[in-house]
Design a protein around this nucleic acid. Structure first.
Lengths: 199, 199
DNA sequence: GCTCCGACTGGAGAAAATGTCCAACCTGGA
DNA sequence: TCCAGGTTGGACATTTTCTCCAGTCGGAGC
């Protein structure tokens, strides 16, 4: 039903864009045009996340940024496609490779800004939002709602969060526990495990 | 003695660069070429800072960034000029207005990155360094070594640090106290005062 | 020189936060 | 059904953060 739209979008953004269509009902990828990450009948769905992100009833998410495993950066937008009854029937994701533009920008920026320390760059004021972004990104990527994440998933998310320095912030643990819908206890346990494996 | 050099540099970087020559001995500005911030016989000197920043005996600092009150961004480098005896005799600062380049870069970057949340942008990993930068900038700007800052100065610096969210980081107070060469107690007192005036 | 005063200091201890532990409790699979 | 492994709330230990205070210091005024 939505295929033509997807194909058109894929064609329009031809060189570096991927279009993915998910089935909202059974957590499956329906089709991929111009694939960048290998996929086909994966597991994605984002209903869990959607509820959290969708208080205003807005059906378009992003553009948010994602990192491909090979380091390329994508700008992603997702849209919930609803059937006549207003129920979500599919989710459309468009991923645009940003690296080319970014390289150009970086080149120019480097001219303006010497190797030096960064601009004003104050501390992330609203790290709480940041936590949700990271968790949300993971959830979207893996198509499993927060409550359905496996232990390994949680470990992975924690690794990212830790990497991002979240736990250097005061009061971070309770917030993360909340975002991950888990208890403080468990979080500490996972964290310990994480640090044991890569200290 | 150094005037020709300064003049040459000023001329070379003509449009948007300022060159300032400080007397290292008596905390005075000797001369300014192509002034951007109004100055003439101000108070700058940075010996206090120099000692801290100069463990490796390197006499060139920066480029670091500074913010002009009108919002323009500068890339600054300073160099300690020594006399025959190896004693610091003057300090040369070159300030380059970065805004033009930056605007161009921003334009291009905006193309690559939609309005969305920022790139990777993880938490400042080394906020400690950051604290020193902020303090250092203030000290340089006001030409008074850390130990010679007035109460008001300290309050101002704290305001900046607080603004930058430093105190949301764990273990921040002792570090800041150290950087400000003051006691934890005093720091808490100042902080309380600060928050009382603007909560 | 002496006193007063406001600011600073180190240390003591309260309060809050962070981490650790554990027994009870799910939950899915043999 | 029972088991193993993971999770959980809560108690408790530890660490950090904050407050308080009595003592000190240095300058202004006498």
């Amino acid at each position: 039903m939505w295929s033509p739209v997807c194909e058109a979008i894929a064609a329009l953004l031809a060189p570096h864009a991927e279009v993915v269509l998910h089935d909202a009902g059974n957590d499956r990828v329906l089709a991929v045009w111009n694939p960048m990450s290998r996929r086909g009948a994966g597991d994605p769905s984002l209903l869990g996340e959607l509820e959290r992100l969708d208080p205003a009833g807005n059906d378009v998410y992003g553009p948010y940024e994602r990192l491909l495993s090979d380091g390329r950066r994508l700008s992603s937008v997702s849209a919930v496609l609803r059937d006549d009854g207003g129920e979500p029937s599919a989710v459309l994701c468009v991923n645009l490779d940003r690296t080319p533009m970014e390289q150009a920008a970086a080149l120019l920026a480097a001219f303006a800004a010497p190797t030096a320390p960064r601009p004003e760059a104050l501390f992330e004021q609203d790290w709480t939002e940041r936590v949700h972004q990271i968790v949300g990104a993971y959830v979207r990527e893996h198509g499993r709602g927060v409550e359905r994440l496996t232990r390994a998933d949680r470990l992975a998310v924690l690794a990212e969060l830790d990497q991002a320095g979240v736990f250097a912030v005061r009061r971070a643990v309770p917030v993360v526990a909340g975002a991950l819908k888990t208890s403080r206890s468990t979080l500490y346990a996972l964290l310990a495990e994480l640090r044991r494996s890569r200290p």
